[in-house]
């Protein structure tokens, strides 16, 4: 299967797959989607990827007790004006332990907007553990927008765990990111979000996490950098109906003429809920800049060092 250099650059960036013009299959199960079509799909003994009708997405069945396997389902869009909505449903069996690598990149050199709305639903059975890595990226000089609207919906059964790394690297003009989760007894959710906006980009990140099970825990850490004239909104609501622990933290560096709005909310429906929120918005710390410059970095180098570290 041949990929354009832009498409292969996307897969390399968002899914860490080798960067040559030939599609190289990663180990494990995978589905690579380019401009609305699957260009390679592979199921394994334990992981069955079944396309939904009309290219609307995938059902991914992960057998109970699957151990340390990986699923790659990255998406590339290189056609200007392409708009798609994709539903991927993950059915994760009891005791399974898997890594899922998603992510989407848009290359747009034309005048029309390209849009990918990806709706990922996870049904994580008892005692299962998932690690989900999603990177978003856009590039190309066209006037058309590069728009990505991911929805991540998680249903975590008793004793299950989900670890999410959500990252928007660069170049996405507009995004509305929705993450919804409900947790049963002893379930555990960890979310690490990294967001970078520049130019006139807008980003909205919305979390709705409900701790429905006794002793469930959620830890949400979002770090973002807003540059140029970009604007960001962070909204989160952590609700608890049972004895449980929730922690959310959003930390933003604001630069140039950017705007950042943070609206964290906590909703405890029982006195046994322990909910904490920390939020901070601030410009690049002047002592950090000064320190790095005393070590010989220019102001620009110091800025990018601080930002890169912060978004690591």
């Amino acid at each position: 299967m041949n990929l354009t250099p832009e498409e292969s650059h996307i897969f390399c960036t968002v899914a860490n797959t080798p960067t040559d013009n030939n599609f190289t299959a990663p180990a494990g199960a995978y589905n690579f989607r380019v401009n609305g079509k699957s260009i390679g799909r592979h199921s394994t003994k334990n992981i069955n990827i079944v396309p939904k009708p009309d290219n609307q997405g995938l059902d991914i069945f992960i057998a109970p007790n699957t151990k340390n396997e990986t699923v790659h389902i990255p998406v590339a869009i290189s056609a200007t004006g392409l708009k798609e909505t994709v539903y991927n449903d993950f059915h994760i069996g009891e005791n399974a332990k898997v890594t899922i690598i998603a992510g989407c990149g848009i290359y747009n050199c034309g005048g029309a907007d390209s849009v990918h709305d990806g709706i990922h639903r996870f049904y994580v059975a008892k005692n299962a553990k998932i690690k989900y890595i999603e990177k978003h990226y856009g590039f190309g000089q066209g006037r058309g927008g590069k728009i990505l609207n991911p929805t991540t919906e998680l249903h975590l059964a008793d004793n299950s765990e989900a670890y999410l790394e959500l990252e928007q690297i660069k170049g996405v003009d507009s995004t509305i990111r929705n993450t919804v989760a409900d947790l049963s007894q002893n379930a555990k959710l960890i979310v690490k979000e990294r967001l970078m906006t520049h130019g006139r980009q807008t980003a909205e990140s919305i979390y709705d996490i409900t701790l429905n099970g006794r002793n469930s825990t959620a830890d949400l850490a979002s770090r973002s950098v807003a540059q140029d004239y970009s604007s960001q909104t962070f909204k989160s609501i952590l609700s608890a109906t049972q004895k449980s622990r929730g922690h959310s933290e959003c930390d933003a560096i604001i630069m140039d003429h950017a705007k950042v709005l943070a609206m964290p909310a906590l909703d405890a429906k029982t006195k046994d809920a322990e909910l904490i929120h920390e939020a901070a918005i601030g410009k690049l710390a002047s002592d950090q800049l000064a320190k790095l410059m005393t070590l010989g970095l220019t102001r620009k180098q110091a800025e990018s060092q601080i930002i890169n570290g912060f978004l690591k």
Partner: peptide, 29 residues
């Protein structure tokens, strides 16, 4: 001259209040 120019000219400075960094290791510093 700005800080960088002076640093390159051979001046170095250990701060009274050490500066902390997110995502930077001692080795990298």
């Amino acid at each position: 001259d700005d800080i960088t120019t002076r640093a390159k000219a051979g001046i170095s400075f250990s701060f009274q209040q050490p500066v902390k960094f997110k995502g930077l290791t001692v080795y990298e510093l």
